[in-house]
Amino acid sequence: MIYSGFEIKSFEVGKGQWHARVQRVDQRPVVIDGMLFPTLDIGFAWSDPDAAIADAKRAIDRFPQRYGMTMPAAEASA
């Protein structure tokens, strides 16, 4: 699923424990406090995949500037 510039995928870890993985659509890393992350695993172990995806959407909405389309400092100055 694509949401606000991110691809969100749900995945199961253990029986009935759903999580969400978030990656930027443009494949660039997400930058959080200067650290680059190619993907982020978001949230807790939810009982179904839709709940995991809904939690990832809330995380993206809560912290748009933190999970947003920022570039690392070295790339911005190049």
Rank of each mutant, 00 (worst) to 15 (best):
M35Y: 12
F11Y: 15
D26W: 04
H19G: 00
T70K: 12
M1F: 05
T70F: 05
H19E: 04
P38E: 07
A76C: 05
V25Y: 03
P64F: 08
M71N: 11
D33F: 11
G14F: 10
K9T: 12
D61K: 06
V30T: 15
H19R: 09
I8L: 12
V22G: 01
W18N: 04
H19L: 11
S10Y: 03
F11Q: 04
F11W: 09
M1I: 05
I60L: 14
R28L: 12
D41P: 01
S47R: 09
D26N: 14
A59I: 05
H19M: 10
A54I: 03
I42R: 02
P38T: 07
T39K: 06
Q17E: 12
L36N: 06
V13Q: 13
I42K: 03
A52I: 01
E12R: 07
T70P: 02
R24E: 08
Q65G: 15
D55A: 14
G34D: 05
R62A: 15
S10Q: 06
Q23N: 03
A20S: 10
T39L: 03
I2H: 12
V30Y: 00
L40H: 01
M1L: 12
G34T: 02
I8K: 01
M69L: 13
V13D: 13
G14N: 08
A74L: 12
Q17R: 11
A51N: 04
G16P: 06
W46Q: 06
K57C: 10
M35I: 09
A59G: 10
P64N: 10
D55I: 00
F6V: 05
S47N: 09
S77V: 12
I32P: 01
V31K: 01
A73P: 07
K15G: 08
A74R: 13
D33I: 00
L40A: 06
